[in-house]
Design a protein around this nucleic acid. Sequence first.
DNA 1: ATGAAAGCGCTAACAG
DNA 2: CTGTTAGCGCTTTCAT
Lengths: 354, 354
Amino acid sequence: MPPAQRHPTMADVAERAGVSASTVSRTLRGMSTVSPEVRVRVEQAARELNFAISRQASSLVTGKTGVVAVLAPTLNSWFIGSALSSLGPVLRAAGMELLVYVTPDMTERAAFFERLPARRNADALMVFSFNLTDEETARLDDLQMPVIYVSQRAECRPSVYVDDVAGALSGTRHLLNLGHRRIGFVQTIGASGFTFSSHERLLGYQQALTEAGIPLDDDLVVATPVGHKHRTAEAIGRLLSLREPPTAIFAEQDEVAVSVLWTLRRARIDVPERISVLGFDDHQMAEWSDLTTIAQSPDELGRAAGELARALINDPEADRARHIVLPTRLIPRATTAPPPAAAPDPARTEEKLR
Amino acid sequence: MPPAQRHPTMADVAERAGVSASTVSRTLRGMSTVSPEVRVRVEQAARELNFAISRQASSLVTGKTGVVAVLAPTLNSWFIGSALSSLGPVLRAAGMELLVYVTPDMTERAAFFERLPARRNADALMVFSFNLTDEETARLDDLQMPVIYVSQRAECRPSVYVDDVAGALSGTRHLLNLGHRRIGFVQTIGASGFTFSSHERLLGYQQALTEAGIPLDDDLVVATPVGHKHRTAEAIGRLLSLREPPTAIFAEQDEVAVSVLWTLRRARIDVPERISVLGFDDHQMAEWSDLTTIAQSPDELGRAAGELARALINDPEADRARHIVLPTRLIPRATTAPPPAAAPDPARTEEKLR
DNA sequence: ATGAAAGCGCTAACAG
DNA sequence: CTGTTAGCGCTTTCAT
């Protein structure tokens, strides 16, 4: 009988089942070379002793830790939270655990990259939404384990991300199809780690305009940090005070789009009658606000990243530069509509005057 | 020289520094019994080889894993996300890592409790916002490691939570002080794992009313799931159609309070002129919406939980039933004001008639 | 199909 | 102050 205050070991289980430790190990790992009767005895003994295997010990010999590490700037983010919530079960199904390194500030981040603690303690590293410096990327390349870039495109390295260009393109097309010709774009600044998506979305917007033969107008692109009412109001003010103000505003992120809605509402500008508003993400708040938006699925992203990690860990021959690109889809709701008929459209006015 | 495709071990470092493995071990753990010159040599050798210690190996002998496990129903939650984001750095400062078990559904949860994988793979377990069954709690009691209950009160077990009763009490008092006498309360239903707080907040509300000599009225308490516009509108409708409708509405959660704001706005009921709205949490959205609310700090909670974990792990003599209760504070913003003077207050009307 | 033995990388006694 | 030695709990040859 094992000492009371200690976890039972395989030796304890072996003794109780009347077999050797090797057999216990084989049984518990589901190897086929164990006779059915012995298997039953071992399993029962393990259950009775409430045995749990020590990963530390087994990884010492197998060289696999059974752990996937995640590096994320914060967990307090709709996007990362959702992705990790669906990553968890995927890993569990593969018998792996989830180790999280949060680096809310530069100090923490520097500490991570200096010590690279994941090195010996995980089989793969997943990097979430980061703007890595070249030096940091180089450090990760030396890591001797698969590094998966999530929500960012990393050349020649495995990565999983959403097709932001296509998303913004289809969103802008939706506005164009409704008849809008002056479309404002609100960029987000200072969102730690999301500049990659930010840039791509602007690109999609511009591409759609070009496609429609509408010249780009820098005055239509403004920026605001997320969650700063005043700054957002200011940015919208710049748009509204243009000689030809936009009839639609495309915010790069739902959280900002909702701020825009508040600003317009306060200014008594009806949405969508006077101005249409379009978001990106399909954040919970989008549904609550009845905001038309371009949906991406962080859940799917988490799952895909998990599968990719599993594949790369188990199969060293796997494609080490595989990119998984996830689609977006437009969700039309109540904040987009055709532009007002009486819109002050100088082009049209001129035509009438002629 | 160590093989190229393998991590260097202490033996490799020892050889390079011309000392024994024990000395390397002592040096790297910062023990004082190492001569300065040797320390320098060892540290340099370790750096040159890019050595990282294997936790698996050291925990095998020390019996400590250097890991704190967290059990959480989801990571996609403002509250849990914030708490974990600040827990991470606390643990890192103590040289520990953060292992996360997410159990988004009952299947995952059952799987966790059946295998209790944390058992051998962590030094402490932190349970976030869960409604555990007695059986589940009993399983955790058997775990042979400190289990810290976060955001819930667990009798005779270490736990960390916010003083919800006091918070709701002070919030309700604020409304009473403004002159409100009919105060509606909106409960949240179906929020996985938060029924503890939910109950406590109702209690605080009731306590404040009783204190003020106002009889409780069940009609003033309605419930809605979070994020269901229609259900929320319905609940508010029940309040508005009372014979004596409330002049203030206290929503147990900011996310619901914001929904309430939307509902009232759509109904063209001015806030706070006609009806005051009060939330609880100080969610980001509260600031954006200029919502008066009772703030709690999940960051502090995460930090406190981390400190408690460290204390319990390092000191077996520590108080194993210690409760840390965190304060809340009222943040007055733009959604609360005195009730309308012309409010249909039958009591006052009667007085006038007399 | 099963057991014996060696060893994964590290730490902790114990000598010196 | 430093080296030697003996495991920690498991997996993996290699026998049988």
